[in-house]
Design a protein around this nucleic acid. Structure first.
Lengths: 235, 235
DNA sequence: GTTAACATTCTTGTCGACAAATAAAATACA
DNA sequence: TGTATTTTATTTGTCGACAAGAATGTTAAC
């Protein structure tokens, strides 16, 4: 019944198909709209996006390269599971990236970088005001990635991006029910302190603030997981 | 003339095509057999590997995800250029990864890890004895990646792998003409010191040795580049 | 009732072909 | 002779189709 190419559907330009599928799937995976472990059917996606399987497959290859989907030979791909066994490895890398990227930002940022950072912080604060947890998580990621980009080290930016993405999945898993609408939100204050330290090019202070901020987030996640696991205890 | 599917050609199993193309191209890119900036023709590769363009494309998407090839829309892909402008970012990240992975190896290695590390070191020493620079570069990468894997942090392993790959390209670009066949080679000695420190679980010593080793390699690369650039000076 | 062999269905991996987009060549014009 | 424009050709992005392999369901045997 889908044989007739409906002219009302958004006409995609040649070459944009893969990127579109990639971005949509990526967002849905990170938002847990696509749950970890759930199979990814190529034909279903092809129907949904009204395109052939070829661009779908290429998007899946990209996602596989980023570790967001896992593929078994001759079998369906699945959305990657969140690895709770290696969680301390995740925390370790996340903390290190928080520190080095903030340090480098203090050293190498330009005036335009600072403007962009302030803009991202404003958007983050808006999400906090609105109490929109999904937006908070995503905008927090944008904020810190912008700082990382000001540090001018693409290797760190890439790893940090992946780590923040993984954190987005974990936070999405727990954060919603526990949200505290405190004003001003502690994260907003910490962000402001970091911005000031970067602007002042104080590397040592940046390192300390970044470490504290990371520890804060790590503790938050650990608490949430502990609270959640406690509910599963048998009586 | 290549229309007749020759039965003498190695029969590939279903599902192995992409991986084969990916691995071969990856090796050729890192060995500079495929020079940076050179275009990658899909139909030529399809003919060469005696398969359709579809698996070739998927392999290219994977390589693009790792930054080894760059793709312009509707135009030919090219082998990524070595970024000499951000070289200090590369050195910075490389040094940091040397340090943290060796530290973690000291903390978390198992007995099997040590055995594997010793095996890799032996193979590296063989390459040094043989004076095979290409093998030296590749086996040095294997050695340090094995140490990183003993540290049990997949995020570091992945970034470190990419950095060592990029280093392999850079070294390949300069190392060959300058090779010194000293015996015992300083790198072999440094590796042995690192192995001992990891086995002794001495985190502080590991950190220092890793930093020294990284500095050594960074200085080597910088010297080679400086020497090379000097030749290009106009008179 | 349980297990084993078989057939069927479903999903993936690969293929050849076509059309859009770009690059190259040929032609027209100043 | 140099530049602009049209034409040709090459290369990519996407498509539909087919076959191999795995998962599922069915029948048969014990």
């Amino acid at each position: 019944m889908a044989d007739i190419p409906s002219p009302t559907l958004p006409e995609r330009k040649r070459g944009s198909g893969v990127r579109l599928v990639y971005e949509v799937l990526r967002d849905e995976i990170l938002d847990l709209t696509l749950q970890p472990g759930s199979p990814v059917d190529e034909v279903a996606l092809a129907e949904r996006f009204a395109m052939s399987r070829t661009p779908i497959r290429e998007a899946l290859v990209k996602l596989e390269g980023e570790g967001l989907v896992a593929t078994l030979p001759n079998r369906s791909s699945v959305v990657s599971n969140i690895d709770f066994l290696n969680l301390n490895a995740f925390f370790d890398a996340l903390t290190l990236m928080y520190r080095v990227t903030t340090r480098l930002a203090a050293e190498f940022h330009s005036a335009e970088d600072m403007a962009q950072i302030l803009r991202r912080q404003a958007v983050f604060a808006e999400a906090v005001d609105a109490g929109d947890e999904l937006a908070m998580i995503a905008r927090n990621r944008d904020f810190h990635l912008t700082i990382a980009e000001a540090g001018r080290n693409p290797y760190y930016v890439q790893l940090f991006g992946r780590l923040l993405d993984e954190g987005r999945r974990i936070l999405r898993l727990y954060y919603y029910p526990n949200f505290q609408r405190r004003q001003p939100h502690p994260f907003v204050l910490e962000h402001e302190a970091i911005i000031a330290a970067v602007a002042a090019r104080d590397v040592t202070l940046c390192d300390r603030l970044a470490k504290d901020h990371a520890d804060q987030i790590v503790r938050l996640i650990q608490d949430m997981i502990a609270r959640d696991l406690r509910q599963d205890l048998p009586l």
